[in-house]
Amino acid sequence: MTTTQIQPAVRVRGLVKRYGGRAVVDGLDLDVHVGEVFALLGPNGAGKTTTVEILEGLRRRDGGEVRVLGADPATGDRAWRARIGVVAQTTGDGNALTVRETLDHFAAYHSRSEETDELIAAVGLTESAGTRAARLSGGQRRRLEVALSMQGRPELLFLDEPTTGLDPVARRQFWSVLQRLRSGGTTILLTTHYLDEAAHLADQVGVIDAGRLADVAPPDEMGGDLRLRSTVRWREDGGFRTVVTTEPAVVLRDLLNTGPRADLPDLTVTRPSLEEVYLQLVGAAPVAETGTVPSSTDVQGALR
């Protein structure tokens, strides 16, 4: 009894959900570790919301094993609910209560809750604190949802496309809110269609496609081999030349040593972005030719 086995905050094995006989989640495995930010990516209809809502205990599952904070969400009680926070993908129309009244009211539902003023400031609604929810803009209502989800200081936050509809400034503001929560120890599972968001926030990124997890990795390692190929690109004879390689340094040395001129106009070396890797994973972009390092003569030829 000297070690405590730390189990993941979310553990899913072989999750299946069917609608009308069609499996929209089809044998999904997922682990979200305590304290990490996990971003779930995937095309429209991939099964992200379905999965997240099963984890939240809002939808029943047809198969598989699910543990969220040690409990089965299908039978999660109030004490369990108090430990999770949720921002759903869709926001309601809002009612006739103001932002402040809404937050003050829902404080009564938690045994401990964040200060209303702090929540309002954190999501940037100070100016609109006295506006009725029904009269807020879509993005402002979204921010109110985010504030409500954090109000009870949950250990685990589910955020289904939390920043959809937010302007770029609000999005960055939201990122810093999440980063603060994360450093406070909150575990976060979010879905997003913004690859930069996943790259910026997440410790782990999972790509879900057709109801299965296609890949899981930290954002800068996602895609494995795909990620190691760099593209060297420069201008020549009014056009661009590109070389795909796993060893860009070698290519550059050859270029600089053997070329007739010292300058290489518009020279860039790029590694595939998370977005490019993602597009390949979900089969929306052709996989780049396996890079063969060009020989010096190739490069000379290219430069001539």
Binding site: T4, Q5, I6, Q7, A9, V34, G35, L69, G70, A71, R78, A79, A82, R83, A108, Y109, H110, S111, R112, E155, G185
Partner: peptide, 13 residues
Amino acid sequence: PTGVRAVDRPAPP
């Protein structure tokens, strides 16, 4: 027991 961060969270109202 679950290994999840133990929080002394009072029972909800």
